[in-house]
């Protein structure tokens, strides 16, 4: 699948002037009456991750000093980046638990909002008196368009999440035994696993259940007929290693994003761009901020985790 096409698609609605993109429409959930005002701190999440109803968020905000604020636009950008990284990386990346939780929350809110709008308009168009009818009709049409755009945008965000999760699941399938070894090696239990952050709880459940199914199947059909020394499915003494491992030395395209991707805080250093050094064998290579490189994955792995580079 061509990423550019997808991105172009995703950008489509944001280019239509009258439409509200996903991000802005998420904002408007919380201040239904003034559509145009977009503030950055609309809804809040308490520390134990329980979600507060959006209509009384202001009161709650004063009650709880420790609240996490939502930045839908930033989260959306982050989702896209995470998704792209995941699709291009040869191994499975860390699961952004909180990000996904927030995104799913936005989606839920957006669905509700769209439902609310479509219901609201139905009432408007039937119950208004004649004088206002004309106004309402034009307004109805205008809103209909933005409603359509919102739905399209919602479908796209859903697609990105779906594609992201499916990509991870397919990686889990491919590297099932490897992941098992990795997890057993560190001796991580179910609870600590989600803390380590490689896979989510659901994904862990999937990993365990699916490999159990597969092993049962293989055992029943093949392995139980074998010599006892040959019943392992992860031996690597003999010929070829039986465990599929991610090819960490694959080449990837990277974009060096740098530490401050939005603002140029360091004005005095404007002409001198930040560089990051990587070592390949004995050679030293400078990665200049804003540059695009093709490089082996394991070389830039640590920069990817820090978010200094993104995969393309």
């Amino acid at each position: 699948m061509d990423i550019d096409d997808i991105l172009a698609d995703l950008d489509d609605t944001t280019n239509i002037p009258t439409s509200s993109s996903f991000n802005t429409s998420v904002f408007s959930i919380n201040n239904n009456n003034n559509d145009s005002s977009i503030t950055e701190e609309n809804s809040i999440l308490t520390e134990d991750d329980t979600l507060i109803g959006h209509h009384n968020n202001n009161t709650h905000k004063t009650d709880n000093n420790t609240t996490i604020t939502f930045h839908p636009e930033k989260d959306y950008q982050e989702l896209i980046t995470t998704w792209r990284n995941e699709r291009m990386a040869p191994e499975i990346l860390h699961y952004p638990d909180n990000l996904i939780k927030r995104i799913l929350y936005y989606v839920e809110q957006q669905i509700e909002y769209i439902e609310y709008l479509s219901l609201g308009f139905d009432n408007d168009s039937t119950s208004t008196d004649n004088n206002a009818n004309r106004n309402v009709n034009t307004m109805y049409k205008d809103k209909k368009l933005s409603l359509l755009c919102m739905e399209a945008e919602l479908e796209r965000v859903k697609f990105v999440i779906r594609s992201y999760i499916r990509c991870r699941l397919s990686k889990i399938d491919r590297f099932a035994i490897y992941l098992h070894q990795l997890i057993n090696l560190d001796d991580i239990g179910n609870d600590e696993l989600s803390k380590s952050g490689l896979v989510s709880r659901t994904e862990y459940m999937y990993l365990v259940k699916h490999s159990e199914l597969l092993l049962n199947h293989l055992h029943n059909t093949v392995l139980k007929h074998m010599h006892e020394n040959l019943q392992a499915i992860d031996d690597n003494n003999g010929s070829i290693d039986m465990v599929t491992k991610p090819q960490l030395d694959n080449f990837v395209f990277i974009f060096v994003r740098g530490r401050n991707q939005n603002t140029n805080d360091n004005n005095n250093k404007k002409d001198k761009k930040e560089t990051y050094v990587v070592h390949i064998d004995d050679e030293e290579i400078d990665l200049v901020t804003g540059g695009i490189y093709i490089i082996r994955y394991n070389v830039i792995k640590k920069y990817l985790e820090e978010g200094l580079v993104v995969l393309l």
Partner: peptide
């Protein structure tokens, strides 16, 4: 069972072709 609570809104079985029209 994967499609359960966490991703109820997403429908993981859906199409993996990016949607273009509603």
């Amino acid at each position: 069972s994967l499609n359960g609570d966490e991703f109820a809104d997403i429908d993981l079985n859906g199409s993996l072709v990016p949607p273009s029209e509603v």
